[in-house]
Amino acid sequence: MKPPPFKYHDPRTVAETVELLARNENAKILAGGQSLMPMLNMRYVQPDHVIDINRVEGLSYIREAGGRLEIGAMTRQREIEYADLVARRAPIVREAILNVGHRQTRNRGTLGGSLSHLDPAAELPLVSAALEATVHVQGPKGKRDIAMAEFPAGYMSPSIELDEMVIGVTLPVWPDGHGYGFVEFSRRHGDFAIVAAAVLLDVEAGGKIKRASVTVGGVGPSPVRCRDAEKALTGEKGAEAAFRAAAETCRTIDAMEDVYAPAWYRQHLATVMTRRAMVAAFGRAANAR
């Protein structure tokens, strides 16, 4: 099939894009196109206006500022994959990226696109939640920041207005030597995750966990922060039993069910994936060694 007819816009600036969004009803932003193009082809979405932001300037960057990483919305996933800065300062993002689709899709797919599409099983929203990212959006009234925890409004729905667009993300950086683990369960390499877990651990000298971040994707409609697990880990010294107990708290997350996996199995995966991510993270922490 072919997409239903719509008008194509090719703006050059964010301001122009936002104005187009404000002016036109039922408009959709086209970023890397790795989800939207097939959705258009299959007519899962039928916009009247498609606004292609591939020529909008100033949206592709990876930089460090004020002890944080800043990544532009139109930064391709492959650029994040190959960025030394990301590997050094937020290595979990690189781990996550390696699970995103295949080479073909990473060469086109963008950070902003993935966040805006907000697939429940997508890797980039998951690590953004784990790192407590701030999402920067811009609309006719100007810019505003949304904490990643507040960003999902529901299943595949970001909490941004129809005339707003994601322009970038700021990722807090964890201390050097922190532990990180990203573990994904998918049926085949490159598929969307069924369940994935992202764990960050700040381990102090002597091996005690000072701070933990535990997040699972694919279980609920958007990434779920596992505060009980984080609490259980804090102060622990990385014993297998402690990880097991902390991970077990994930079994009660409200889980989705579909052709890929029943709810009980997703909950089970949440416990196994978080535990494995904890083990991986702890193993990588400098002070654990």
Binding site: G33, N41, D52
Partner: peptide, 8 residues
């Protein structure tokens, strides 16, 4: 490399 079916 890209998928030509997803590039407008």
């Amino acid at each position: 490399q890209v998928c030509a079916c997803m590039v407008p």
